Amino acid sequence: MRALTLIPGQNHSLALQEIDQPDCSLGHLLVRCLDLGICGTDIEIAAGNYGWAPEGKQYLVIGHEALGEIIWAPDDSGFQPGDLVVGFVRRPDPVPCPNCAAGEWDTCSNGEYVERGIKSIDGYGSEQFALASAYAIRVPLSMRATAVLVEPASIVAKAWEQIRRIGARAHWQPKCALITGAGPVGLLAALMGEQQGFDMHVFDQVETGPKPDLVRALGATYHSGKLKDLDLRPDIIIECTGAAPVILDAFALNGRNGIVCLAGLSSGQHALDFDIGEIGRRLVLENDLIFGSVNANRRHYEQAVAALRTADQLWLQRLITRRVPLEQWPEAFERQSDDIKVVIDFTG
């Protein structure tokens, strides 16, 4: 069986190689990989920046955004052969901590969780993989072409849920929302904002190409240039770039009683000169709030499937700008100017 493997921490080690068939002796689902989405995390792991192999192994099978088809399922699993499934990324820590024990493994309090294709457990980038039914969600057959987007959609489903919960702290009636970054996560965040009826705005650096077109097709407003120059005071900002200058500008842009959600990961290598006192002053005097959000639990995957199921499937298909056959997998890790979501096709 072929799989995309690498040695964590070692650049240029990513390879397509033969590995053993998955072990389903514990009653796990046996799943055939159909589509594997590639994101910035995968590219950074492939560059040797981080990643952890399973205990006792040298290599890690990468891939955490996957759509699969069940080949075999135990009778009591609730699944059957032919079902389309998406597997969750994170698994609870072995203790488990109070959050993990409550099914909120996305907020693990001791950091001992594992993540498929990232931290200490093999990912989904193999022709077949085993998947515990407790960490799988069924998707409709009608979403065959777009369900690979469920995992990134779960990230922003959680972000929107947290925003709503925080907003309930007061009599809050937000109307305007801004997304910074028009990659897959940003565009999916904009989609969910449109579905909730917000006046949606999306900011990105590019001025032409598929990103502005996709934003306008949603009925949202696209912006480029400098974020700090926007004539806008949004009630909600979801920051999806992880770029330090954009994050800083976002802090200064939100309206009174505003909420800024940081959903993009920063490299942490950009030193900026800014007045933390002024930011603190605005947070206090305007009742603003800034928070971070990462990963997702079952509830957020369910919300993601619901959002994608009701979306325009043709619009969602446009987010997938390249499908790369498995035999040509290196092309999926070579970024192109018009890329949004690149998917490796395991079915060829």
Score class of each variant (00 low, 15 high):
Phe129Gly: 07
Lys119Val: 07
Ser120Pro: 01
Ala243Val: 10
Met200His: 08
Ser337Gly: 05
Asp288Gly: 15
Ile43Leu: 15
Ile237Tyr: 09
Asp249Ile: 07
Leu14Trp: 01
Gln269Ile: 06
Ala271Tyr: 12
Tyr113Gly: 00
Arg309Lys: 13
Phe291Val: 00
Ile19Cys: 12
Asp312Lys: 06
Thr310His: 03
Pro92Thr: 07
Arg144Gly: 01
Ala304Pro: 01
Arg281Phe: 13
Leu272Glu: 06
Ala168Tyr: 12
Tyr113Ser: 09
Asp42His: 01
Asp83Val: 00
Ile237Asn: 09
Pro210Glu: 10
Ala53Phe: 04
Trp172Cys: 13
Cys33Gln: 15
Arg90Leu: 02
Ala332Pro: 04
Cys24Asp: 08
Pro94Ala: 12
Gln10Ile: 13
Lys211Cys: 04
Lys119Met: 10
Leu316Thr: 00
Gln17Arg: 14
Phe203Ser: 11
Thr180Arg: 11
Ile121Asp: 04
Leu4Trp: 04
Trp105Cys: 13
Gln303Glu: 12
Gly183Phe: 02
Val284Met: 14
Cys24Tyr: 02
Val324Gly: 09
Ala147Pro: 08
Cys176Val: 15
Asn287Gln: 14
Gln17Glu: 14
Leu326Phe: 02
His64Leu: 13
Gln128Pro: 03
Asn295Gly: 04
Leu16Gly: 06
Gly51Lys: 07
Tyr50His: 09
Ser25Ala: 13
Cys24Ser: 13
Arg91Gly: 11
Leu30Thr: 07
Pro330Phe: 05
Ile7His: 03
Pro152Met: 07
Arg116Ser: 05
Gly37Asn: 12
Leu314Cys: 08
Leu283Ile: 11
Met200Arg: 11
Leu218Ala: 12
Arg164Gly: 13
Gly268Pro: 02
Cys24Thr: 15
Asp312Pro: 01
Pro98Ser: 14
His64Asn: 03
Gly193Gln: 06
Ala177Ile: 10
Ser133Asn: 04
Phe198Asn: 06
Leu308Gly: 09
Ile166Val: 14
Val85Leu: 02
Ile320Lys: 02
Gly103Lys: 04
Thr107Ile: 14
Ile247Asn: 00
Cys33Asn: 14
Gly193Lys: 10
Glu331Asp: 14
Glu286Val: 00
